[in-house]
Design a protein around this nucleic acid. Structure first.
Lengths: 325, 325
DNA sequence: TTGTAAGCGTTATCAT
DNA sequence: ATGATAACGCTTACAA
C-alpha cells in the first residue's frame, strides 16, 4: 500500500522488480490516484477558479489563454459565469458562487469584475482568506489586487492620436460611464489625447453597459450632426452602432466621419473593416493564469506582497473607418 | 464534532440551543465544509466536466446554458478546451485532459466532439468506467451515448424548403465534409429537400472545418457563376464567405442569388441580415446539463440504459439574403 | 527496500 | 440529543 504510493509518485527507494509489478497491476486495474484526497491533505486542490460575466465579448479569448496555461500545469479550471444584474439578485448569485468555490478549496481565482460596484463585495471573503486573486481586463479600486489587462488609458490616448493624425478636430466619445474601469480609463486617455492634440470633445454619449442602447447613440449623434468629424467608441459594438447611424445620416465613412472602436473583435470577421485596438486577450488570459500560478506556488504569505500590474499595450488595427479622408 | 456535522447538513435530532451555538461559532470562524473530503467518501465530487473545441462559435452559448443548470444544482463546472488538431499531438493533449478529469473524479461529462474521428478514442475510458457522458451539438457514431443537439437533418431540409418557396432551382451547397455530424446531416437533409422540391445541386463545395477557406469558396463559386441561384452554407461563416464572393461577382442578393446559413450567430450582430437557422444553443446546453445530472443522480447502472436523444428544432431566422427576388 | 501507524476533514454507524 | 469509532484513499514520519 505504501510502496504503491511511492511508485506512483516516482519516489526513490523502490526495487525495480516491485515497481514493475505495481505499475502493471495499477495499469490493468485502470488505477487513477484520487485528486480529491491529495487535495484534502496537501491543502492544494489543484483547482483554479475563473469568474467572468456571461456573454462578455472578450471573455472567451481570455478564457482560452488562461485555460492553456492551467492545462500545462495540469490544473483543473472551474468556470463561473455571472450575469450582469444588480441588487439582491446579484448578491445572492455571486455569494453562492463564491461559497461553492471556497468549499471546493480552489487554489486561486481569476476574476473579470462586472464593474466597480458589484464583484468586490463578494470577493472580500477570498481576500480575507488570503487566497490568491488576479483581476483581468477590468480593474477595481476597492482592493489592491494583482491586475492583468490592457493599458486602457494609453489605448484611449492613442485613439485620439490616430484621429488627430487623420485631420480630425471634433470628436464624439461613446462610453459606458465610470463604473467600469476600461470605460473610465479609455475615456480619460481619450480626453487627455484630445487636449494634447488640440481637438474638441463635441459630445460624450454614455450608454448602459448592459443594454447597449443603439437608439440612444443614434439619437445623440443625430443631434450633433455636423458638429463632429470623428467618433471613438470605447467598445467595438458602440463604434459599430455609431457607424450605422452615420450611414443612416448619409455621412460618408471615412470621408466625413472617422470611426474607431476598441477590442478588435471583428478581426475574425471580414465583413466590417472597423479601425480598432487589439487587446491581445489570449495573452492577457495566459499572463493572468501565469501570475496566479506563481502566487499559488509561492505559498501563503505573512505580509501581503505588493500587487503586480501587468499591462499589455493595445495594438492599433487599421480598418477603413478612419483613413485620411 | 459529530453534532457539528449534523447541524451543517440540517439533520434532525439537534437541540435548538446547540444548533444556535454551533452556527454562531461556525460563522465566526468562517467555517466552510470541505467538498474534497465529501467527494472522497461519498464517491460524488460534485464536479462536472465540459469538454469543447476551442474557438467554436456556438460553444459559448451552449456553455452558458449548461453552466446555469449546473449552478442551480450547486455543482462545480470544470471546463476544458481542446484544440482542433489531429494525430499524435491531439492524442497527447486529449488523453492528458481525460486523465486529469478522471483523477479529479468528476461525476459526469459533457462533450462537444471535435469530429467523428478524434474525441471518441479518448472517451473510451470514460465509457468503460460507466461515467455518465452526454454529447452536445455534434454526435458520433463510435459509441451510443446520450445526445443533445439540433435536428440538423430537418434544418438542412428546411433550408431547401425555404429556398424552393422563394423560387430557387439550382443550389450550391457548402459544407465541411462528412466527418462532422452537423455538416453531414445538414447536407443530407438539404439534398433530400432538393429532391423533394425538384431542385438541382449545382455544386457541393467541401472545405476544411479548421481553416474555413474563403478562397476556395470564392474560387468554386466563380467557376459555377450563372449556374446557381442560391447557396446554402452549413455554417454562417461559410454563408458569409459566399455572400462576399457574390458581391465580388456583382451578383445581387437576394435578387440573383439567395443565401442561407446555419447557426444564426449574427443574431446579435445587426450588420448583416443573413437568413439562417437558430440552434437555440442556450437551451441545448441547458438540456444537456439537465440530462447529465439526471444520469448522475440515477446512480450506477447494471445494464446500460438506452441512450437518449434530445433534438431541438432549428428555427428559421429570416434575413434579407433569401427573400423572394 | 518495505511496512506500520497516524492523520487529513468528514460522515455512517453504533452506542450512550 | 450527543458522542465515540471506524472508514474514505492517500501521504508523511518513523520503524524494521
Amino acid at each position: 500500500m505504501m510502496t504503491v504510493s511511492r511508485v506512483l509518485r516516482n519516489k526513490s527507494n523502490v526495487a525495480h522488480a516491485t515497481e514493475q509489478k505495481i505499475r502493471a497491476i495499477a495499469n490493468r486495474l485502470g488505477y487513477k490516484p484520487n485528486r480529491l484526497v491529495r487535495g484534502m491533505q496537501s491543502g492544494r486542490s489543484g483547482i483554479v477558479s475563473v469568474v467572468m460575466p456571461a456573454g462578455h465579448a472578450i471573455a472567451p479569448a481570455i478564457l482560452e489563454g488562461a485555460y492553456d496555461y492551467f492545462a500545462e500545469k495540469d490544473m483543473l479550471m472551474a468556470l463561473d459565469l455571472v450575469h450582469g444584474h444588480y441588487g439582491e439578485k446579484a448578491i445572492a448569485e455571486q455569494s453562492k458562487v463564491i461559497n461553492r468555490l471556497l468549499e471546493s478549496r480552489v487554489d486561486g481565482f481569476i476574476l473579470l469584475p462586472v464593474n466597480e460596484e458589484a464583484s468586490p463585495l463578494y470577493f472580500k471573503e477570498v481576500i480575507d482568506r488570503k487566497i490568491p486573486l488576479v483581476l483581468v481586463d477590468r480593474n477595481t479600486i476597492h482592493f489592491d489586487a494583482d491586475f492583468v489587462g490592457t493599458d486602457d488609458f494609453v489605448g484611449g490616448y492613442e485613439a485620439a492620436h490616430v484621429l488627430a493624425e487623420n485631420g480630425c478636430k471634433n470628436a464624439v466619445l461613446i462610453s459606458t460611464g465610470d463604473l467600469v474601469s476600461t470605460s473610465r480609463l479609455r475615456s480619460e486617455g481619450f480626453k487627455a489625447g484630445l487636449k494634447a492634440f488640440k481637438m474638441k470633445l463635441t459630445a460624450n454619449v454614455i450608454v448602459s453597459n448592459f443594454t447597449h442602447n443603439a437608439d440612444l447613440i443614434d439619437h445623440e449623434l443625430s443631434r450633433c450632426q455636423g458638429q463632429f468629424d470623428c467618433v471613438f467608441g470605447i467598445g467595438d459594438r458602440l463604434a459599430i452602432s455609431a457607424w450605422h447611424t452615420c450611414q443612416r445620416l448619409e455621412l460618408k465613412i471615412p470621408q466625413q466621419v472617422k470611426v474607431i472602436g476598441f477590442g478588435a473583435l471583428n478581426l475574425r470577421d471580414p465583413r466590417v473593416a472597423l479601425s480598432s485596438f487589439d487587446q491581445q486577450p489570449y495573452k492577457v488570459g495566459r499572463d493572468a493564469a501565469k501570475l496566479l500560478v506563481e502566487r499559488i506556488e509561492k505559498g501563503p504569505w505573512k505580509r501581503k506582497p505588493k500587487a503586480r500590474r501587468i499591462l499589455t499595450m493595445p495594438q492599433f488595427v487599421a480598418g477603413t473607418s478612419c483613413l485620411a479622408g
